[in-house]
Amino acid sequence: MNLKEHIQQHKKEFDSEKMSASSEILFKKELQKELHPTKKTKVVYLRFVSVAASIVLVFSIFFFNKNSNKVSKTSEVLSYLSDESAGKRLEGVYKFDDEFKNEDSKIIDALLKILHDDANANVKIATIDALLKFPTNDKVRTHLITALEKENKPLVQIKIIKSLSFLREHRAQKTLKEIINNNETFPIVKSNATLAMNQLKQ
């Protein structure tokens, strides 16, 4: 047998050397670094998540503050509207008129209560102006009609009649007819009611 044949027959004996135990750990690190840079991606991902979380937190705090401000504003207006003093109630109505752009159901309910029950005509008139900010709100429109049915103060009656005419509220015609036919109705109220009736009929 020649030398090459002998070596090839015992090839395995030439491969007896073993790599060191630490080499596998080093290789795994190298493999991760070169072909699986997942840690970097994870770090980037985590950074992205933490930045996003910070933004969400900032916005949450902003909206929470905004919301809590709104809550405190609502409470303040409600407390004014329920005050014993007509001046305070009037201040509450103006505060709502000035500072609230959107509907607030609690405040609208309080205003509707004033519309029906308040003893002060000025407060009622200011309240009607404040309610007219929400002309599409059916609750407001309905309550204006029912308030007109019960109202006996001429100034307030005229304010409601003009408001219903402005709102083109056809459901008010029955109440307007009753006011016109009522002998106790002030003439100026009658003439306003007649004018409104004619406008609604057009």
Binding site: D15, M19, S23, E24, L31
Partner: peptide
């Protein structure tokens, strides 16, 4: 498909084969 576990398996299978050749 760059699967890590398969790469490690290949490494374990052939590391000493390559090492003997390099060392020689």
């Amino acid at each position: 498909q760059n699967k890590y576990t398969a790469q490690i398996e290949v490494y374990k299978l052939y590391k000493n084969l390559l090492y003997n050749s390099c060392y020689r």
